Simulated scan of single mutants.
Amino acid sequence: MVALADATGADSRGIVVRDLSMYFGHTLVQRDLSFHIAPASVFMIMGVSGCGKSTLLRHMIDLQRASQGRIMFDGQSLTDGDVQKRNAIQDRIGVLFQNSALWSSMTLAENVALPLQLHTKLRPAEIDDQVAFKLALVGLDGRQNRMPNELSGGMRKRAGLARAMALDPSYLFLDEPSAGLDPNTSQQLDGLILKLRDALGVTVVAVSHELPSIFAIADDSIYLDNVEKTAIAHGKPGELVENAAPNRVRAFLTRTPVVEEATDGE
């Protein structure tokens, strides 16, 4: 097994998850998760369907509260119950949900403007400037007045990214960003994610099972196992394949059948 990184001694910069366990009622989802996400990196949460990837993401953006453990952003705890601290962390987080979650009755400009209207004191003209800049950043300049249903799937993802970036977050969370996209559009979106990381220094945390994207953009990753209900591998995906990761991890990363490891006594 590839040794998991010890988050207890990790640099306080970036995101530190320590001894996190997640439950639905009395049903265990994942247990004892500990890892560190470096600033300005792309971190991938991997695993088969139903293993708890999106659940972990929801815990990390505070949509669900942890049963036990800690989540820290640059040394500030998201899980200590201090509402003021949690709100300050949430203000630094942008989220792209799996289906983009754009308001269908609003234009792209109105969708991107909404967070600025709700959370800043910018004047309307200043908001318009920010909206135009964010849409240009994702390659949608000149499309302010388009409706979501007038866009392709890839363009809706870009619009969702523009809205997620509206408040200039330090952390960008992406839930299955390439889901439902053709290979070429997916590759273009991967390039955009790397561009945002490099140009803005944003830390990206993504949930994905799309292998091309995983290998193309991940600086680091964690594999959530649906059998042991914990993380069984942590590292750069290409290195996990080369360095004898557990069988289920190799099978996932190479799309090959799982060959179960022998147990003691066999």
Results as ranks from 00 to 15, higher is better:
R143D: 06
A101H: 14
A164F: 02
D128Q: 13
F173N: 00
V138W: 02
E110I: 11
M147W: 06
H119D: 05
R146P: 08
D182T: 01
S186T: 01
A199F: 03
Q188Y: 00
G139F: 12
L174D: 05
Q130I: 14
T185I: 02
N149T: 14
L189K: 04
A166F: 04
Y171A: 03
Q117R: 15
A88V: 06
P124Y: 12
V202I: 09
A88H: 12
L194D: 09
G153Q: 09
V138G: 00
G139W: 05
A101M: 09
G154P: 07
L151F: 06
Q130A: 15
L135H: 08
L189R: 03
R123N: 15
L172F: 00
L140G: 03
P177K: 03
G180V: 00
V95W: 11
Q188I: 02
A199E: 13
A132S: 14
N111L: 12
L108S: 14
S100L: 11
P124D: 15
R197P: 08
D128H: 13
A109N: 14
A125T: 12
L122C: 05
R123H: 12
L96M: 07
D168C: 09
I127M: 11
L161Y: 02
D129L: 10
Q98H: 15
L108Y: 06
Q130H: 10
G154Q: 05
A159W: 09
A109L: 15
I89F: 06
L161C: 08
V131Q: 02
L151G: 06
A109K: 14
A179D: 01
R197N: 14
S152V: 09
T107P: 05
P169C: 01
R92D: 13
M165W: 09
A125M: 11
S170V: 13
G180I: 02
E150Q: 15
N145S: 15
L151E: 03
N184F: 04
E126V: 15
L181S: 01
R123P: 05
Q144I: 07
G201T: 02
V112S: 14
D190I: 03
P177W: 03
G142T: 04
S186E: 00
L172H: 01
L102T: 08
V112R: 13
Q144Y: 14
I127C: 11
E110Q: 10
R158T: 06
M147Q: 08
T120K: 09
A159E: 11
N149I: 10
